[in-house]
Structures are given as structure tokens and as C-alpha cells.
Design a protein around this nucleic acid. Structure first.
Lengths: 217, 217
DNA sequence: TGCAAATTTTCAATGCATGTAAAACCTTAG
DNA sequence: CTAAGGTTTTACATGCATTGAAAATTTGCA
């Protein structure tokens, strides 16, 4: 079914991605020019643009695929499953997908993460991608519970959950070295968001009481 | 105190902003070139870059100022005020600031909002700015409750709150025409996030019961 | 007035992105 | 096996944002 033409295209695509990542690793993202990437992959500079719409686009080449997986998951509501449980499954699955990417090696995945965290242009693009995805996910969540959750509630939930996990993970990134630690931080953020931010008030109050037990006496 | 040099600089800065917004309105953001903006403001193209680091940067010229206001607000914890209340004040204040911007007219503010919503490059930049701000706000929140809230909890709270409000507002943007309506949507998202996403489960369940009252009989 | 510092302008270069048309390359019907 | 038909790649050319460096101007102040 896949003719030579198609296979060759896939090979070129892969070559571009690998060449780019290799060069980004060596000289940094901004310092690597498209011409160099194209040369490394043995194609003309112009050809780059028939595979990716931009330098940034190459880095997030699998964004669409990821989103589709997530949307598909939201369509698998189990009988009687409450909205929050479905969302928790989505968060869990998202981490799984991030950890074991089909096409990239572990090293490549790490490199990409590092690049996205450090290069403002990539950070911005990642946030935009995530934002657009969240809107679509909100619609999907609404569709999964058409009569129970309106679109604004769905958007609120998706935004709160992804927003909290995102910030928590980034805020703790220097401390969490292993994937497992990061995952744990994410899980706690999700749990806290599900429970409600006001639960922080209680927690905070009890901590103060514990610190100053005899304050009023 | 402000010498001629300083005053002139402020005037040029203002001229650039106004020229840019005028042209963006007329021909669109992407279609307006820096050369045109500079010409309209009567400076050389190169000079543009001694006022703004990029075309995008001009649009968000007041981002830093906004962030500082927000950080300052987080430092004004009232006696006995719980974290969630402080955060609500922050959200409220953010909307106030957005509504009545000191330097821009109402029309200009609207134009800018429209531009940011429609131009992907600006959307991405806005999200990046917001992201960076959130991290700083999380630190500030932690500093406001040093013993009660650790950094990760603070980040979780900030991320959840801003994330939910952001998504809710955007998801409902087509329905909410007036500032008041948007503000109301934001408020509900914040309240829901404070209460906890699991509260959606209850709400959803009760809605189903209401729809099918005699289901099990 | 006249010098030193700050600013702007000019000029040149780089790199991303995009359009166009010709050349090189598959696929497949015959 | 071969040529028509479609697709991909290439070479060239352009527009524009951004940056560097040096020349020209303007401002602050003695």
C-alpha cells in the first residue's frame, strides 16, 4: 500500500527531525539555521517547508497526534463515571504519552523538553498549542457529558486542571529530578484542584496553629 | 526633573504605540511592517528597536507594569485573610486593570484585545507573558504566606485559578458580549475552582436526576 | 559657546518564510 | 518496457524582522 514515494517522504521527514535535534543539541536552537538542518538531512532548504511550516513546527511535529489521543480518551466515558474521574484519567494518560513517545528515543524526548523549557520562542509555541488543545478538550468534555456539564463548566475544569498541573510542575522543576517525582507533583496538584483551592485555607490555618500552639493563652 | 531628553523619549514611545495601533487597525497586524510604523511615527526603522525589542513587544508594552501591580497586591495580605480570599482579590483587580487602562482609550484597549485573540503570534506571546507572570505570582503568594503555603501549593493555586478563568472566558467569548458578562463568567470560574472541580460531579449528577426523575422506579 | 554623553540615523548583513517555475522523480496504464 | 501524469525537489528571487557598527545629531551642562 505504501509506495516508494510515501516511504521516502517518511524517511525524509524523519531525517529532518533527527538532523534538527542533533544540531539543536550541538549548537542550540536559535543558533541552528534552517539551511544547516536541510543540509544535514540532504535536502534543499526550500524542501524543509514542504514538511514543516516553520522551525518551531518541527519541534512539535507530533502535537496533533497527541491532541487526537486526548480527544479520543475523553470520548471513552465509562458507565457512571463522574466528570472528575474522567479528567484524572486524562491527566494520567497525558503523562504516560509524554514519557514514552513512540518515535523519539528517551534522550531525544529529554532534549526536546529541555529545548522547550529554555527557548522562549518554543515555550510560547508550546503554550499556544496547549491552549488550543485545552479549548478542544473542553468541547470534548462537554460532549462527553452533554446534559450534565455546560461548555463553560467544562472549560473551567480543563483550564483549572491543566493550569494547576502546569504551574506546579514548572515551579517544582528544580527539585523534581526524576520522572516519578514530577509525576507525583502533578498528581498532587490535580488532587488539590479537584478538592478545591479553598482547601488550602484549612491546610494553611492548621499549619499556623501547629506552629504557634498557645498563641491566645 | 524630567529633562527634554526624557520627555522627548516618552513622546516618541507614545507616537510609536499609537502609530502602530492605528496601522494595525487599518491593515491588520501581519500586514503592517515595522518600516511603516516607524515612518508613521517619524523615526527611522532602526530606532523602533531602541524602544521595543520586537513588533510583538510593542503590543504588550505595559505587561511589566501590570505584573508589578499584581505582585504588589499579593503583598497586601490583610490580617487573618485566607489565601483564597487574597487570590480572589487578585482576580478582581486584574479585571479592573484590564478594563480601564491608564494610557489607552477604550477603543484602543478593545482593538488590542481583538488583535491578541486573532493573531496567533500575539496569542502565543500573551500566553508566554501570562505564564511567566504566573510563576512570579506563585512565588509572591508563597512569600505572602511563608509558613502556611509551600511554593508548589502556591503554584497550583495560581495555575488553577488563572487557568480556569482564562479557559472559561475564551470558551464563552462568543456569548459574552459585554464586559460585565465576561466578568461574570470569570467570577463563576473562579468560584468553581475555589470550591473544587469535584463539585461538578455533584452538580452533574443532580442535573441528570432532574432530567430523569423516575429512572429507577 | 563647546565638549561629552546619549540618541538617532544610515548602511549592511543575516535568517526565516514564501512564491514561482523548471527539473527530477515515482507510479501506473498500456 | 515505456511514456503520460502527477508529485517532489530544486534553484532563484523577494519581503520582512532583527541585529551590528559606525557616522551624524541632539541634549545636558560647564
Amino acid at each position: 500500500m505504501a509506495g516508494l514515494r510515501e516511504r521516502k517522504k517518511q524517511r525524509t521527514r524523519r531525517a529532518l527531525i533527527e538532523a534538527a535535534l542533533r544540531l539543536f543539541e550541538e549548537k542550540g536552537y536559535a543558533e541552528t539555521t534552517l539551511a544547516e538542518i536541510a543540509a544535514e538531512a540532504d535536502v534543499s532548504t526550500r524542501t524543509f517547508f514542504s514538511y514543516f511550516t516553520s522551525k518551531e513546527d518541527l519541534v512539535f511535529y507530533d502535537g496533533q497526534e497527541r491532541l487526537e489521543k486526548a480527544l479520543a480518551l475523553l470520548a471513552t466515558r465509562r458507565p457512571g463515571e463522574p466528570p472528575s474521574a474522567l479528567l484524572v484519567r486524562l491527566i494520567d494518560a497525558s503523562f504516560d504519552w509524554a514519557a514514552q513517545d513512540g518515535a523519539l528515543t528517551f534522550e531525544e524526548t529529554e532534549l526536546r523538553t529541555r529545548l522547550v523549557m529554555t527557548e522562549p520562542a518554543l515555550q510560547a509555541r508550546a503554550l499556544l498549542l496547549l491552549f488550543d488543545s485545552q479549548i478542544k478538550l473542553a468541547h470534548a468534555l462537554h460532549d462527553a457529558f452533554p446534559e450534565e456539564i455546560d461548555l463553560v463548566e467544562a472549560a473551567t475544569a480543563v483550564g483549572a486542571l491543566f493550569g494547576s498541573v502546569k504551574l506546579a510542575v514548572v515551579a517544582n522543576l528544580e527539585h523534581d529530578r526524576s520522572i516519578e517525582q514530577i509525576w507525583e507533583t502533578a498528581r498532587r496538584a490535580a488532587e488539590l484542584t479537584l478538592a478545591g483551592l479553598r482547601s488550602i485555607d484549612e491546610k494553611a490555618a492548621s499549619r499556623v496553629r501547629a506552629d504557634r500552639p498557645g498563641m491566645a493563652s
